[in-house]
């Protein structure tokens, strides 16, 4: 489970995450939504120990980030969008590296690499360098890396970007099954359709502040809207003036062409 209390991150004078608190119990999938620059990725980075919080407490899978960061990292699987990789390694070498870093048994690493590669239709690519992979293949590799050590908590930051429909379907059902086995999933995304079907509970962050934390049904009642996209637009105030902005965009494009 994840427990966050009064979490704050400041970069100089700007506040990326502003005093947020929430809890995600074991076996739950929670959608973490917000517009660009809202503070979603920063929150996840703090949860995984990549960024040090300015204030607040983090506890993941019973491990305190301030005192037991190492144990916390062992329990977390993290997937981020367009992550940089050591591109001269092959798929198998990368997974071997990850397995070793997360203390997976050597024989299990080999077994899991073969099985994951088959599962994600990448068996022919195991000896191929990452530099030749498409974005979708890289994303699959990142997902495999995050799952390799059987973590208790999964932190997914836009995990389905660039993935094909089959893989997205597989991932959705797999995450639901993993949640049933007691794994906690914090799912950060812009794709509201996926969040709507996958996550029974939604948290919305805007300008660093947590502005909503409820089930989809509760959010529908709260906003009198039926679709998550409308709920999101209303809560984050991103829908206002969209018609005018569209007109402006067309005018700018056409003016640019004249010039």
């Amino acid at each position: 489970m994840i427990r966050v209390s009064h979490l704050t991150k400041k970069y100089g004078t700007s506040i990326a995450v502003d005093d947020i608190s929430f809890e995600v119990p074991a076996g739950e999938i929670v959608g973490y939504l917000g517009p660009n620059g809202a503070g979603k990725s920063t929150t996840l980075k703090m949860l995984v120990g990549l960024v040090e919080p300015t204030a607040g407490d983090i506890s993941v899978a019973g491990c305190d980030a301030a005192t037991d960061l190492l144990e916390l990292k062992k329990r977390v699987g993290y997937v981020t969008e367009n992550a940089q990789l050591f591109e001269s390694l092959t798929l198998a070498e990368h997974l071997q590296l990850m397995g070793r870093l997360y203390h997976v048994e050597e024989s299990l690493i080999h077994k899991k690499i073969l099985e994951f590669a088959r599962l994600f239709d990448m068996a022919p690519n195991t000896k191929q360098k990452i530099s030749s992979f498409s974005q979708g293949m890289r994303q699959k590799l990142l997902i495999m890396s995050a799952l390799l050590h059987n973590p208790d908590v999964l932190l997914f930051d836009e995990p389905f970007t660039n993935l094909d429909v089959t893989t997205v379907t597989l991932m959705k059902t797999m995450l639901q099954r993993l949640a049933e086995t007691g794994k906690t999933v914090l799912y950060c995304t812009h794709i509201l359709e996926v969040a709507e079907t996958l996550c029974p509970r939604i948290m919305i962050i805007n300008k660093g502040k947590l502005i909503a934390d409820a089930s989809v049904e509760e959010l529908q009642k709260m906003t009198s809207q039926t679709e998550l996209a409308q709920i999101f637009a209303q809560l984050t105030d991103t829908a206002s003036g969209i018609d005018q902005k569209t007109e402006d965009a067309v005018r700018i494009v056409m003016g640019g062409a004249d010039a």
């Binding site: 990549l50 190492l70 990292k73 992550a83 990789l85 050591f86």
Partner: peptide
């Protein structure tokens, strides 16, 4: 040095004793 130096996040995330 490496051109793929940004991949160091992998080490930063990993539980390195």
């Amino acid at each position: 040095y490496s051109d793929h130096w940004k991949a160091k996040w992998i080490f930063q995330c990993a539980p390195l004793t």
